[in-house]
Amino acid sequence: MFPSSLRRPLTVLSTLAFTFTLTSLSFAAVELKQEAEQVRVEIDGHLFTEYHFAGARRPYLYPIIGPTGGTMTRHWPLEDDLPNEAHDHPHHKGLWYGHRNVNGVEFWGDVLQPNETGGQMIHDGFLEIQGGEQQGSLRAKNKWVVDNTGEVICTDERTLRFTKDPGGPMIDFEITIKAGPKDVVFEDDKDGCMSIRVPETMRVELPRPKGAKVTPHGEGHIVTSEGKQDLAAWGTRANWCDYYGPVDGQTAGVAMFDHPGNPRHPTWWHVRTYGLFSANPFGQSMFEKLPDKHAGDFTIPAGQSSTFRYRFYFHPGDTEKAKVAEHYAAYVSSVK
């Protein structure tokens, strides 16, 4: 028997332990918290990413914290006090969806040319925000609006699912685009659609120094399901593509999966050695160097819709160690 002087402290400790156990059992491993301009996503109490739905020309996710603890996207232009980051393409914000030419309207870039008409994807409300033991999700509505006229070309309903997985966290991005009273044409262009800008340390090629004739190589690599690597991966078609390299001193990567139910699967990959990583089913003439500059045009008839599904798998290690091919097979079997 314990001395009477120790019985009360032990009882208190036992009560605390029991309370902690109950709390642990009811704790949602993936939590989503809506704030004024973003939804914060936490896994096991730590920031995973934020969905920014206000203050930009299109919604985006930033930052995204990978399985090794490092940030899996470039910081600029959302943060500009970090050294050794290229200040190119200011529209490359974290992870986003967009396209350069939709009915002649620019839904990709932020800086317009004199002859371009710009458009914005304006947040139109949330349909669902919820957490869970292994997965949390949000559903949001958006209007694709022409800047100078206010015309709504189309709308979208997007579902983002955030999954805690032993191999590394995952984001499923499903977007259904619905045409209004007119046909919606995604015109053939290389700049689109499902995209992420990886961190500078993962680049395959580094910025070329002024006056240099040779582009220096980085430590990053690109690999597709068809075996294309690095520069040779651009403009080719594949079920999936993986981009990996050093992140804060450790090897990490992000693989993007194109669901077989997507229109024009397998998609073309607009994946650049400087860090842009996009799945684009609407750039056929540019990727394949075809004389017909409208070969890749894609039309959603008035009043109808098209759905596209992708998964981002953030993993430690390279493509082989992360078993990207096996994860793609699991994705195909789980998302019907």
Rank of each mutant, 00 (worst) to 15 (best):
L6C: 15
F308D: 10
S334T: 14
G249N: 09
P199I: 05
K178P: 10
C193G: 05
A28I: 00
H46Y: 05
A179L: 06
S278G: 11
V254T: 12
T117H: 14
V30D: 00
N280Q: 09
Q113H: 12
T224G: 01
F308A: 08
W96M: 05
D248G: 04
V198E: 05
I222Q: 04
I153D: 07
V102M: 06
K143D: 07
M202Y: 02
F162L: 02
K323R: 15
F257R: 13
M1I: 15
T236F: 00
T21W: 14
S278L: 11
D172Y: 05
H270W: 03
P90I: 00
V152Q: 09
S334K: 14
T319V: 11
P83K: 04
R208M: 05
I222E: 05
T201H: 00
D258Y: 03
A140E: 12
F126V: 03
F18S: 15
K336T: 13
S285H: 07
L61Q: 11
W96F: 06
K293F: 04
C193Y: 10
Y244C: 05
H221C: 01
E200I: 02
D189W: 04
D189L: 07
V271L: 08
I171S: 00
S306P: 03
D230E: 08
Q130T: 12
D81Y: 00
A255D: 07
H52F: 10
H123M: 05
D124F: 01
G167E: 12
K141L: 13
P281G: 03
F314G: 08
T236L: 02
K293L: 12
T19Q: 15
G235E: 01
H217R: 14
T163L: 08
P281F: 02
V102T: 03
L127Y: 01
G245I: 00
S4E: 15
V335W: 12
K213I: 05
W268T: 08
N262H: 05
P9I: 03
K293S: 09
A330Q: 15
H46D: 12
S333M: 11
W269N: 08
V247Q: 00
T49G: 08
P246Q: 05
L32R: 00
A140Q: 13
G104W: 02
L13N: 14
R40W: 02
K293A: 09
A252Y: 00
A232F: 02
N280C: 10
L138D: 01
Q250F: 01
A233V: 04
T319S: 15
A322G: 09
K289L: 14
A329N: 14
R161S: 11
R309I: 11
E128C: 08
G66D: 06
V223S: 11
D124R: 10
L25I: 10
H259R: 08
T273Y: 01
S4M: 14
Y244V: 03
Q130W: 03
T267A: 08
V324I: 10
Y328L: 08
T273N: 08
M286W: 15
L13S: 14
Q120G: 13
